[in-house]
């Protein structure tokens, strides 16, 4: 099987527990204007499953020792569900912990096959406002919530990830919405403050980056926001 991916990154940080290798799948149904991986749309390459597994297995001892594993990210891995499931199967066959980094913005994923293969879901909550999600990212919030509810019903292990995007979701009202949404779930949260490290990629791809001039949040602003989450009784994920 051939996999359409744009990067395999070793010794990743923040993509799940322990020492992890992240496989970045190409393509995504969303069009978030702050995206830091724009190459998922165009700059992908095709690698054989065998090659990908060889790279992933290189770090097997590191996963074992650190209780780490493999994270499948993107783009949106569920947009290439069959390849994603095939890879999860292979990784699992070696007894390696698996994590799936997803926006959950894909309708009716094949959870009956995904759930037994995935140890941890890293699920994005970008906003609680359906209109903003549709207008800015091009997705349906209801799809995200339906999927999240399903995962919850099935008792999946989930970490919610909230990107903090200036001008999109860092105003009080947006944050309040996100917090009251998240409080309905039993999951810990990771805040992902906006950074513009992807700007060079846009230039290389000849694309315009809408967030090129947006300054990252200050450490104090980030701390204030995480204070709000803590005050609402939301745990921070230890990954």
């Amino acid at each position: 099987m051939e996999l359409n991916i744009f990067n395999i990154q070793h010794f990743c940080s923040g993509d799940g527990p322990g020492i992890r290798t992240t496989v970045f799948f190409g393509s995504c149904p969303l069009r978030c204007p702050w995206c830091h991986n724009p190459e998922c749309f165009s700059n992908t390459r095709t690698l054989s499953m065998e090659k990908v597994m060889e790279e992933l297995l290189h770090d097997k001892e590191f996963y074992d020792r650190s209780k780490g594993g493999v994270t499948i990210s993107g783009g949106e891995p569920l947009a290439r569900q069959e390849a994603c499931i095939a890879l999860l199967e292979q990784v699992r066959a070696h007894g390696i912990h698996t994590a799936l980094d997803t926006s959950l913005a894909v309708k009716d994923p094949d959870f009956s096959r995904l759930l037994p293969l995935t140890d941890l879901f890293l699920a994005d909550i970008k906003t609680a406002d359906p209109e903003a999600f549709c207008a800015v990212c091009g997705g349906e919030l209801q799809t995200v919530l339906d999927n999240l509810n399903f995962l919850t019903e099935k008792g999946a292990d989930v970490v919610l990830r909230v990107p903090l995007i200036p001008g999109f979701n860092t105003d009080d009202a947006s944050l309040e919405g996100i917090i009251s949404l998240i409080r309905q779930y039993p999951y810990p949260v990771t805040l992902l403050p906006f950074h513009r490290m992807g700007s060079g990629k846009y230039k290389e791809l000849g694309m315009k980056y809408a967030y090129a001039d947006t300054a990252p949040l200050s450490a104090r602003e980030v701390e204030q926001i995480s204070q709000c989450f803590r005050a609402a009784g939301i745990r921070e994920a230890a990954i």
């Binding site: 923040g14 993509d15 830091h36 990771t190 950074h195 700007s199």
Partner: peptide, 24 residues
């Protein structure tokens, strides 16, 4: 430079972005 879901070679970043990291 490693952050969630992303990593990049520092030297490949644009100057302004390098300055962001520097200031932190």
């Amino acid at each position: 430079v490693r952050v969630s879901g992303f990593s990049a070679y520092y030297t490949k970043l644009e100057r302004e972005v390098q300055l962001d990291i520097l200031s932190r």
